[in-house]
Design a protein around this nucleic acid. Structure first.
Lengths: 164, 164
DNA sequence: ATGTATGCAAACCATTTGCAATGAC
DNA sequence: GTCATTGCAAATGGTTTGCATACAT
């Protein structure tokens, strides 16, 4: 808990630094958005963020959300993902351990999976003529609950054929 | 060259097998699309595929393209990517060595980078309650030509400030 | 005071969908 | 002959944009 609030302070400082350096204004909206994002370490989509913001005491327009997310991504305070649908997902970048993303192609849910080995492997891999800043690993498959669902369905089909 | 045409034959057979098994029709459009895709080993977007198809002697509608791509992805003959924009990219799945994707955040170009080590590491990693089918590694950064561009720009700015 | 950021609504654009016509089975 | 597939055009939905207003500097 205590550590979390410290993280919030640090990213807030970093954000301030970037905003000043790039001659952008330090608006309450921007800080409110950053705060909400760093109140949770999981990934989220825009609609969820929009709802969460407006359920909290801070009403923000979608336009401002998109605008601010672009800044945060550029400043590397937020990572942007696309898990196969034409929709962006985001997660905080600072103080967030590297993890693979296990994406269920059946229900669309995304699970995280920490993997320090792959992390260091990818990080230490140098590629001539390319200056890497960040990376992502997406593993597609079927999650356990969808596997159960599919087995059940298969069984039903077999039973139906038997009863013919 | 010879090997390539053999690959085409094999995927064609696989496609036929899947289509029959799933009671889908074997239309000339579907085979023409598969053929075009396996004429190139690089990734491509829908618009490019649409143009390529129509520049060749086979005119196909966008609807059919999207429809067929869904099938090919489902049958794992094609891999679908999203490199950060709300647009899908595709590449053939069969006989295509695993590679990382180096995505330039400046110009958007995507380069491939073979890496057998990471491949086996990810493949051998078992995750409880998740049955993985395929995976992708995206590395974001700045490509060499954009790095040069940026350095040049920086120099110009410095010179301008000097001349003031 | 100046001009950037916000909020709203309209525009955008890749993708999906509805439907009549076509053609694989 | 039947019904899945095609092609077209319209709809969808996440994201972007234009513009008047608000407010950080």
């Amino acid at each position: 808990m205590e550590k979390e609030s410290k993280v919030k302070e640090i990213v807030k400082e970093k954000f301030t630094e970037y905003l000043i350096k790039n001659h952008h204004r330090r608006t309450p909206e921007r800080y409110a958005i950053l705060d909400i994002i760093y109140s949770d370490s999981r990934h989220f989509d825009m609609e969820t963020l929009y709802q969460t913001m407006n359920d909290s005491n801070f009403r923000v327009s979608r336009a401002t959300l998109y605008n601010t997310m672009q800044l945060l991504v550029k400043y590397k305070l937020v990572i942007q993902h696309q898990f196969g649908k034409n929709q962006s997902f985001y997660e905080r970048a600072y103080n967030n351990d590297f993890h693979h993303h296990l994406i269920c192609t059946s229900c669309g849910k995304v699970r995280e999976d920490r993997d320090p080995t792959t992390k260091s492997l990818i990080e230490n891999r140098k590629t001539r003529g390319f200056s890497a800043t960040h990376y992502a690993v997406y593993i597609y498959g079927v999650c356990s609950s969808c596997q159960r669902e599919q087995k059940k369905l298969l069984k039903e089909i077999k039973n139906q054929q038997k009863n013919k």
